[in-house]
Amino acid sequence: MDKSPYIDDDEVFIRMNLTERIQHFILIITFFTLIITGLPLFFYEFKFFRWFIPSGRIFLIRGLIHRAAAVLMIGNLIWHLLYTAFHPRGRENFKEMLPRSKDFRDAFEQFMYNVGITRFLYRRGIGRKFFDRHPYWLFEKPPLYGRYNFIEKFEYWSLGWGSFIMIFTGFFMWNVELSLRLFPLWVHDIFIIIHGYEAILAFLAIIIWHMYNVHFNPENFPMSRVWLNGKITGRELRLLHPLEYQKIAEKRRLKAETKQNSLGKNCA
């Protein structure tokens, strides 16, 4: 992406405002509390967890902490929903976050670009005719991303969907008597299975996918600081979120032009 005269490379933009950072922080705390207090039930055979929970009393406290963290997480979610619904920036984020067909294409293109097999074949002279006619399949350049790329959107909506499932099943696990008044035992059993496996899925997704993308990715290593200070520089915006960069640049250009026009009008 070419540099725009309207955006300085050192200019600071707010990618996560304070509200979003606090929400993210509460999410981190509650998520890992839930994982730590929940995993022992899933991996009940691991010796380590027997060491971690040595007595029945601590097991009961574990349950209390788990539910307390769940309540906090639900509160955080409600806050986020209200923020999304009523705050202008929240609404804007939501619009940016909506999945589009471009995201699926982006994922595919990014992957093919990273693998680079078609470029390799082309250089070897294999299928040259085909690639000359359809240069798209060479994946010469990585796709351009807006404010949120397919990775971030996938994480966001996974979290949303996962939260819904976990809250629903968790609520009925918390209130067994209510659950079994409404559903037969075999349905309640499904709730338990889903709650456990969805948790494992979420845990692995965070550990593998999110941690790679924000920590271990050579681009960010050792860590992206956005979650702490919320800041992103003009350069980072240009390299990582070029469409957003373009959008801002375009907006500023229009603004400058209208200003110039009005100035010109005034002079005339």
């Binding site: 067994v176 008597e177 079994l180 008044r181 409404l182 559903f183 037969p184 035992l185 075999w186 349905v187 309640h188 059993d189």
Partner: peptide, 12 residues
Amino acid sequence: HPGASRRFAEGK
């Protein structure tokens, strides 16, 4: 489980 209904029996 106070108030347990016959739902408890519908499953294994």
